[in-house]
Design a protein around this nucleic acid. Structure first.
Lengths: 139, 139
DNA sequence: GTGATTGCAAATCTTTTGCACTAAA
DNA sequence: TTTAGTGCAAAAGATTTGCAATCAC
């Protein structure tokens, strides 16, 4: 965990309470893994692996459920780049991504380095929920 | 099939030859379904369904293989919007998409209606393969 | 013929679900 | 208590793979 990224004022417990999620042992532990460090892009499988490595007893199904609950609460953002694999981004602010096709890695693009101009109108009766920009790079 | 979209000069056979793909019965039939009409966004499952409806004997596995071969040959473009579902777009020109979150439908955004300005540099040693813009809309 | 292509079924992989059990309020 | 949350194992999809049979050249 990189000291540069510590977020001392964002306690997992408070985040869960604010989201109206009951702070269970598993949710607290996962929230700590997710938010007590730098922003990251992580898959359910990876997070489950980290939990196991930290001796946190949690099932993969609960990891999935929790990731979706956190996403629903606005604490995470789900990003899909690849058929059949979702990443969850702890950075929920408006920003975009590089996708390294070779390694499958995802990386934030600093917000000011991409701009979408002339976003079209949403079709009649609908509204724009989000604009995702994925810049795919490879060797 | 909309008469407005016919592409009389683009015969499936020629497209396959140009791509260096042996024009088998299955590839020819799938190419006709894909390219003899308007541009479309289609999943493997949907294309297989259409083939069956047209009495084309082809397995789902072959549909997957063929879609990937066509994509590799630049005849299709793969688009991922949803974990666990790929669409293939017969329009390979530079353009972007609306994604209707409710219905799961994908729709082209006319090219001039979106512009990405200030695309960032690709990281050292890599090059940008593509920039995907997905505008997610919902009620 | 000969090697590329296909079909089929089985395997894989990610994600979701049903239900009895456990824990938070 | 009472109800939300969890674990487990099984189910559900989507996609890939292995291999014998088939087809294009």
């Amino acid at each position: 965990m990189n000291a540069n990224c510590q977020r001392p004022f964002s306690h997992a417990l408070d985040r869960l309470r604010a989201a109206g999620l009951r702070p269970t042992r598993q949710r607290l532990a996962l929230a700590k893994l997710l938010f007590d460090g730098c922003d990251r892009h992580i898959s359910a499988e990876q997070l489950h692996g980290e939990a196991v490595a930290h001796n946190i007893r949690v099932s993969l199904a609960t990891v999935y459920n929790t990731l979706h609950q956190f996403t629903g609460a606005g604490m995470l953002r789900e990003i899909v780049v690849d058929a059949g694999r979702s990443y969850f981004d702890t950075n929920t602010s408006d920003h975009h991504h590089f996708f390294y096709e070779q390694s499958g890695r995802l990386e934030d693009i600093p917000g000011h380095m991409v701009a979408v101009s002339k976003v079209p109108e949403a079709p009649e009766g609908l509204s724009i929920r989000r604009v995702d920009v994925i810049v795919r790079v490879a060797g």
